[in-house]
Design a protein around this nucleic acid. Sequence first.
DNA 1: TACCATTTTTAGATTAATCTAAAAAATATT
DNA 2: AATATTTTTTAGATTAATCTAAAAATGGTA
Lengths: 238, 238
Amino acid sequence: MVFLHKNNKFYKANIMNPISKAEENHLKAIFNLCEEFSKPASTNAIAKIMKTKAASVTAMIKRLSEKHPALVNHQKHKGASLTETGKKIATNLIRKHRLWETFLVEKLNFSWDEVHEIAEELEHIKAEKLIDRLDEFLGRPKFDPHGDPIPDAKGNFTFRKQILLTELAAHKTAVVVGVMDDSPSFLQYLDKLNLVLGAKVKILERIEYDGSNRILLNDKQEQILTNKVCQNLYVKTL
Amino acid sequence: MVFLHKNNKFYKANIMNPISKAEENHLKAIFNLCEEFSKPASTNAIAKIMKTKAASVTAMIKRLSEKHPALVNHQKHKGASLTETGKKIATNLIRKHRLWETFLVEKLNFSWDEVHEIAEELEHIKAEKLIDRLDEFLGRPKFDPHGDPIPDAKGNFTFRKQILLTELAAHKTAVVVGVMDDSPSFLQYLDKLNLVLGAKVKILERIEYDGSNRILLNDKQEQILTNKVCQNLYVKTL
DNA sequence: TACCATTTTTAGATTAATCTAAAAAATATT
DNA sequence: AATATTTTTTAGATTAATCTAAAAATGGTA
């Protein structure tokens, strides 16, 4: 067993150190930021996601890299990114989150706007066997209730050629496959409009005046959608 | 909002204070000890269950009763017991634990010796709606995979006239309904013997020599069971 | 390039949950 | 009842995760 000596403290350098919930959440935040912006995640940005302060993030990153070397890369003032091992852990958290969301919606009849918070807790349950079995029980789903891809046990995501509804050519039929914004208020609004995953949409007309769109829903119902709604809906052409 | 002043510290006296995992586990330990011995739970006994030290338990009980008044009764050196509110919380934890165990066995095909640890984590997930839905999904089961009663949402347990196999009269047929000892090793041994919940048993002969019992299992198979096994098996006569 | 604004880090505190060692109280034994 | 043993509590530390305020570094702009 190796020991590191930093700041007058000894830390056991051991990957087997269990990773705490707070640490897991920081890893996930760093992962998501790095994926989105393709550059190291800033302490401020991480703090915003974690609802903590930049100083706390600095402390956490320091602890993380001392306690669990080989998870996080970071140089002072240069932001943080994940190593391959770190990415694997973050991906597994996302896998768990999305599998639990799928369970909640498919098996327990939750609606898609209610599941995020609960999955946020469930994803920290450690037993790997539980997740394997859950995955199997759900029929190894590839996408969660918001249309986001569920990585497999090895961390591979299934990609789907999806575009935003704003990018769909007029008069082409497509199917709703996901949302960009998964806030409860947006999801509830979509429910009201019957714009659930799998719904068929065709743009009938784009209105110059206010950027809104007249669409045909499921081959029968006409509907006006604002540009903002269209910018947050992923569709896939048939 | 009321404030209490003790030991130079201020605590918000607010039942709405979220109860931590450690606090919940202490409540559960106190509940179980009080139920089993019908007297206040000693710090030592609690510490043993919690795998901590008596001093830590004292500190925890103090914190608990200052932060969440009306959950725990306790006088110095006299042990701790729960108020009605405290009991309700403990009962709800037991409900969650046993529902999750049922889920793991019934839906995810875990065996009855594997589920305790995982349920120990799952029981701390807070969302009440989740438990209601899970209960419904499982068909509102009354007993968990070990035969222990699952309290309903109001905290009521279903009682069953069950006796230990040691107490069963010879030549009377009964059905295995539960276990007293739910350690993995015992449960795995029972699996080997085919002594699962629902198995039919009849005592053919009690052997003076070593206290063992010759039984008939499921009307066909003869089997020797030690006294220890019989002392840990609950049965119900037909 | 020098200054200013922003971002990040350090320094120093706080709180929850634990520990060990010692003191105090309760219980058991002669 | 006096003493010995056991149990419980107190006192004082530790660690993880957070905070605020202040110092230091970075980056953009005059």
